[in-house]
Write a protein that binds this DNA or RNA. Structure first.
Lengths: 318, 318
DNA sequence: TTGCCGGTTGGGCAATTGCCCCTCCGATGG
DNA sequence: CCATCGGAGGGGCAATTGCCCAACCGGCAA
């Protein structure tokens, strides 16, 4: 009541956080919380539920599950990966975002803990965005966050799932948005764009990134590129006809993991994918539909790291 | 499965981790977990409980208040406090009055909500005054507000920051101003004053207060006692020489939280501070300058409750 | 004023969870 | 061989939790 007068909804969240803390950290029952906070049991229950639904409470499991570690080791071995993490799957929801996001956040956090300056480059996508949400709030002004591709659609509007800004905000690091759109309208325009100092600087940062995290897009009707409107149905059919199975930061590649030489790729403005680099280029991806895309990216060594689900790991190894 | 034969208990932990993951991350019920893992519901429950007891699950609250509650819990534990609240600090104004005032007001409001008669005794200071301003207007004629110290300066003028009157007005409760000045001119005069029926009655109310809220004053050039003219520069230097680090309702104490036996304290007319009382004696204080004063008050158990800022809580614990 | 509307509260009940206690099973030792 | 023992599994019940629904509250328009 009283405290609500000033910042109603922020105080309600505060109460939710407090209730969540009392419940999950202090181990109170909802009755005790109700008593301590001077509200009814039902309200306490609502606050706890809100802490959950507003993603105020983050749960992490600190135990390497043997099966997942085995799968990760097998993937590392088979595909010569530097970084590989496998998150447990719920058999009935095998590609729940949260598990993979937590695993990816842990990997990212490891790098961010360094006192030395680190450059982290990010792609886009739900997975990366969910990853950032799982990261604890930390202060890392020594690092740099850079985006590997634009967040503007052709008409200038921003794409959703922008992970770079969120990450930079969360860890208090300077960040470099990608100064070009996702696609240029022509090869000529692209060349001109790439001459800009800002573009050259950002692309250079991407090339020197100490950790790159990217999503992987499949090439079917649910393809992120298509859903987000970068690729018309006709273009996509054409690309599929040319053997496209997946894309990373909009670079479309075939089943061998080779970037396809095509009109579309010649308009892609994203930072180039490094060739068999020493630097970690880690894909964060799951979902049955992405299987061929992930397999190809691994085969072609477009990536040298993978964070995925138990279910996907099993399929990749079979 | 296969790994069981070699490290049975590690597999049990694995199962616990998996069960915990399915429960806390994937949101399954224990029945579903039991079905998916092929065990009985009871076993699933045991596994989930084990994940908890083995500290496999780590819960984090991503809301400023979460950190505050951690700090408050640590302070409560370290200094054996009954009431402890830590308000979030704005990094750029770590001791902003408002946050602490809101926290203190919430604590006060909890007591005021009681239908039973409660006696609330107050000290003085900006913090308490700000606290009262944060309190909702409510009708509490059943309670009693009493001041722990005078609001008259030597010349009879009133001190600013009088919280008692404001609080009484705001909640519509009867109130007892402190019928003596802050300082008597001599020990003899003080004894005479304390014989007055009104004084004895008020002091008695203070001793029986169900909640006492006081400020803490530091002992440097910005000391409230000095700024408000109760303590000359020379007197303060003398007290500092005698080890004074802080004061509560004008009672000056040393770094161990012991009221100093000195000429000044023998003239202090404020209600006595209860010794290790069961009744809540809560300090509302923040500001870097007050650190030694707060630390000493905690050490000497002059207070058994504290409402402070995140920044101060961190310093107190470090 | 009245009545509607969105949002919050508390009662009550069903689902879920925590836990006691008994049983079973394998190991151990007499 | 049998008695004992400790640990895991399961039945069952009480406590806790989740959620639906009706009541209530404050704002707003008629």
């Amino acid at each position: 009541m009283s405290q609500n007068r000033f910042t109603p909804e922020s105080t309600r969240l505060d109460d939710a956080a407090r209730a969540g803390w009392l419940y999950y950290v202090a181990g109170n029952t909802q009755d005790e919380i109700a008593r301590k906070m001077g509200v009814s049991r039902q309200t306490a229950q609502r606050l706890v539920a809100m802490a959950l639904s507003e993603r105020l409470v983050k749960v992490r499991l600190d135990h390497p599950i043997g099966r997942c570690m085995d799968l990760a080791a097998a993937l590392r071995d088979r595909f010569d990966l530097g970084i590989c993490e496998v998150a447990p799957s719920d058999p009935e929801a095998p590609d729940l975002l949260t598990g993979i996001a937590i695993a990816a956040a842990a990997e990212l956090e490891r790098v961010l803990k360094s006192p030395e300056r680190r450059i982290v480059s990010l792609g886009t996508g739900r997975n990366l965005r969910a990853m950032v949400e799982q990261l604890p709030i930390m202060s890392c002004p020594q690092h740099v966050v850079v985006s590997r591709l634009g967040n503007m659609m052709a008409d200038g509007s921003a794409t959703p799932y922008n992970a770079t800004i969120r990450l930079a905000e969360r860890i208090g690091a300077p960040h470099f948005p990608y100064p070009l759109p996702v696609l240029a309208s022509s090869t000529q325009e692209l060349s001109a764009m790439q001459q800009q100092q800002a573009a050259r600087n950002t692309i250079d940062l991407c090339a020197r990134a100490d950790l790159s995290l990217v999503g992987i897009g499949q090439m079917d009707l649910t393809a992120p590129l298509h859903v987000d409107g970068f690729l018309s149905r006709a273009e996509m059919d054409e690309l599929s006809g040319a053997g496209a199975v997946g894309e990373i930061t909009s670079w479309v590649y075939d089943q061998h993991g080779h970037i396809i030489d095509c009109a579309f790729n010649r308009r892609v403005a994203s930072a180039p994918l490094p060739h068999s680099s020493e630097r970690p280029m880690v894909a964060v991806a799951s979902g049955l539909a992405k299987l061929p895309a992930i397999r190809a990216a691994l085969a072609g060594r477009l990536i040298n790291g993978l964070i995925t689900s138990e279910a996907m790991a099993e399929r990749l190894l079979s």
